[in-house]
Amino acid sequence: MARKKGRDISGWLIVDKPAGMTSTSVVNKVRWALAAKKAGHAGTLDPEATGVLAVALGEATKTVPYITDAMKAYRFVVRLGQATNTDDAEGETLRESAERPSDAEIKEALHQFVGDIQQVPPQFSAVKVDGERAYKRARDGEEMELSARPLFVESLIMLERIDADHVELEMVCGKGGYVRSIARDLGEALGCHGHVLRLRRVWSGPFEASDGISVEEIDALAKTPELDEKLLPLQVGLADLPELRCTPEGAARLRNGNPGMVIPGEAEYGDEAWASFEGKPVAVGIFKAGELHPNRVFNLD
């Protein structure tokens, strides 16, 4: 089997994704610009959405689940009065209404979408139905009965009533949230229909859109040391886990996939934590009786 070409480079590049570009296209551009052997992203954004797209390089791809599981914040504009088949502005209009809720009615309706809720994904989404992506079936004109999924919404607030037809909202939520479903269901709750007009992910876990690099900058700095300097270290993706330092012997054992001795810190028995040695991440695992039992090992040498 042919070996993948590219550099063994590890870390995170935070991109402020533009509208009109798929998340996969952004990852491919980053991989090319850094001549990286391996890259992936932590949480897909719809093509027309903007904001934080955290791209993991090399060994940092092993920490992607900790970012996809982290809390995220979105700012989005809901177009009131219209339902579309995609629940955003890219789709065909299915239903229209002349009804328009007051600001007070919108704020009151938002309460039902906060906390532990059940959310039905959009018809045009990546969830699988009998082994096939829902959006592929939807493109063929099939209407599916998609199962509701649990979602934790920490907050959902109205930022601005732009005009009678448009309202800007901000949502902080956990893993698996569909902003398009929130807009759709809010419109139905208000009796006027609704869909997402614009969407921006403002932060995801430890990563902020304001710190992101643009695609234009990536092109300008491609294959230069200046782009390498934009990389954040792998351990930034482990910000929600406690760090435990390990002994030289412990580091050697952990690198071989065996439980290794660590110096007690903030982690308690049974906690997931990450171990470091001489400032470098070594492994992620479960802390038990003075040892870390690894489930992910990093090769940063």
Rank of each mutant, 00 (worst) to 15 (best):
A164Y: 09
Q118L: 11
N28I: 11
D165A: 15
Y74V: 03
K72L: 10
D140T: 10
V129D: 03
I67T: 08
A104K: 00
P122W: 01
A98F: 10
K107M: 14
R31V: 13
L94W: 10
Y135V: 01
T86S: 00
A36S: 15
T50C: 15
R100W: 05
I162T: 11
D163N: 15
S125C: 11
E168F: 04
Y66G: 03
E108A: 15
A36L: 14
Y74D: 09
V30G: 10
D88T: 07
E170T: 05
L94S: 05
G43T: 10
G91K: 05
A98V: 12
I157H: 08
V64F: 02
R161K: 10
E160V: 13
A89Q: 02
T50A: 13
D88E: 03
A42Y: 08
T84Y: 02
L53Y: 07
M171V: 15
S147F: 12
R75L: 09
T93W: 00
K107H: 10
E154F: 12
E160F: 12
E99V: 15
P65Q: 11
L169P: 14
F152E: 14
N28M: 13
Q118T: 03
A98C: 03
L34S: 06
A98D: 13
A60C: 07
P122D: 00
D103V: 14
A33N: 14
D116H: 13
H166K: 09
D46C: 05
V64L: 08
D103Y: 05
T68C: 11
N85V: 01
D46K: 06
T61E: 03
K128V: 04
K62G: 03
S125F: 11
R161D: 11
V167M: 09
I106C: 10
A148F: 08
E96I: 05
A126P: 06
A89M: 06
S155H: 13
V27Y: 03
E143V: 14
L45Y: 10
V52G: 07
L110N: 03
W32K: 14
A164V: 08
Q112M: 11
P65W: 04
E59Y: 03
V52S: 07
V153H: 08
A126K: 09
A83W: 04
A35Q: 15
A36V: 12
E96L: 08
P65C: 15
P150R: 11
E96K: 11
D163F: 06
S155W: 05
A126G: 09
H166V: 05
S155F: 01
K72R: 12
R95V: 09
T50Q: 14
G40P: 08
E48S: 13
R75P: 01
T44Q: 09
L146K: 06
K107S: 10
V77S: 07
G58S: 09
G81Y: 02
